[in-house]
Simulated scan of single mutants.
Amino acid sequence: MASKPPENWRAYMAEAAREVAAGALPPECASVADLYPESLLRATDAALEAFEDEVRALREPSDGAVFGTVEQVVLALNAINRDKQHGGPHFCTEEREQLCEYIHLTLSEHDVDIDALAARRGIDPAAITDRWRNW
């Protein structure tokens, strides 16, 4: 299964903390933990887990059903990104790319042919989240 982006973000923060502790990074880089508050990580994990559950439940899904699951996770991530509780917005280029890749990989791991799905809608496979995404 694809690793969730918050796992990558936690690993990045841990690595930065180790490098600061070892003197390889200046102490001002210790604030990297502020990039990903725990509340953001937990909320993102929960949204992605709900997406995984929905994708797992799909059996010979229609294009509409697949896009429905994509829409739900994207709207959930939109809400997380703009939630002031997390000090947002947080999903910048790197995070966007990881989230989109995760959505693609999760669908592919459950036998959704992204290329065919996108072709039937007349869109680029990389654009399956674009209709709803504001991060």
Rank of each mutant, 00 (worst) to 15 (best):
V20Q: 01
Q85C: 10
V66H: 01
I123T: 13
K4L: 10
G23M: 03
N8C: 14
A47S: 11
L117N: 09
S3F: 10
A24W: 09
I128P: 01
A76W: 08
E49S: 08
G23D: 07
A30P: 09
A76Y: 04
L48E: 00
E94S: 13
V20P: 00
H104K: 04
A14Q: 09
W132P: 02
N81V: 00
L40N: 08
A14F: 02
S39W: 03
R131Y: 03
D113P: 02
L41Q: 11
L107Q: 01
S62D: 07
A11E: 12
K84W: 15
A116T: 15
L48D: 01
D53Y: 05
E19S: 08
A119M: 11
T93R: 14
Q72A: 14
R133G: 01
P5Q: 04
E94M: 14
F67Y: 13
E19H: 10
A2R: 05
E28N: 11
A46G: 05
D34V: 09
R10I: 15
T106Q: 04
G122P: 07
Q72F: 04
G88E: 04
C29H: 14
F67P: 05
G64E: 09
C100H: 13
M13R: 11
A116E: 15
G68V: 01
D53Q: 14
K4T: 08
E54G: 07
T69M: 01
D113M: 05
K4Y: 10
E95F: 05
E19Q: 14
T69P: 02
L77Y: 02
P27Y: 04
Y12Q: 13
D53R: 13
A33C: 12
P5K: 03
W132D: 01
K4F: 08
